[in-house]
Amino acid sequence: MTAQRKSAHLGKRITPYLLVIPVFIYYLIFWVQPVLQQVIRSFLDPTTGQLSLESYRLVLTDPDFIPALRNTAIIVVISVTMEFFIALFLALIIKRDFWGASIFLFLAMLPMALPPVAVGAMWKTGLTTNGWLNSLLHYVGFLPEGEKIYWLAGSTWKMLALIIIIDAWQVIPSVMIILLAGLQNIPKELEEAGYVFGGNYFTVLRKITLPLLRPTIQTAVVLRLIAAIQIWLIVIVLVGFSRLPVLVERIVYYHEEVPRLNISPQMAAGYTMIVTVIVSLAALIYLRLSGAFSRREGG
């Protein structure tokens, strides 16, 4: 009897482990293994196989490293902030449940559904001098006959701004849906109590809704932060390699564009490690600063 009970207890205790072990095994084979290989490679000299910090030296002395770091930092800080506020704005609009809200939600999610490559191409064809963006401006009377805007020419700042806007267009929906789910999870009485006890829309938003949304905001922002640091596809689609270096674009550049250079494997490995460290640190710092580790309400 007691033995049976004990085994039943044991069964209950090990069930969750049986259920999660496949995930961890899967990660081990298809994530930890390649990651470790890359990590090890970054510490080895490819010709001699000796331990070496050459990869890191190469990256840190790369003239493109500082610009890449700076460009990435600018993009990340502006994108994440801007995307968060726009996504929050959209989520708050949709939460009002107005006539047409459901269709609006669908439309707002649309950019997320489209293939990034196609979206890149869409903007590329839009931004060429004969592209649809100029055509549109022409039709609404903004661009007089014969005049054209050269979107893809010009300063680094202009390119950065374009990239940030275009990237935002596609990724805002994925931030928005997380925030929307969080907003919908807040019992409406909590906000209504705020209105009854003297709050207007903005005080209730600031003092009740947003504090209650905090865990959701942290989740959405950290996921976005991790992805934003690794931006590259839209950059090379719009301006090509090397014109506007960003960190992960450098990895792709050495992997795909000039894989035969002597330094390519080491450059790629070095950049990969540096990106990983930066991403981890950024995520960690964000979570620490936003108080995700010291939540006292405790559910």
Binding site: P16, V20, V23, P34, Q37, Q38, L223, I226, V248, V275
Partner: peptide, 28 residues
């Protein structure tokens, strides 16, 4: 269930995104 490693499981969604995907593709 509550179990050891529950938080690790939760945070793994972040971990697996921290390493650039393109850099995993090659060893893969």
């Amino acid at each position: 269930y509550q179990f050891a490693g529950r938080d690790l499981l939760k945070f793994s969604a972040l971990f697996v995104r921290m390493f650039p995907g393109i850099a995993i593709a090659l060893p893969m």
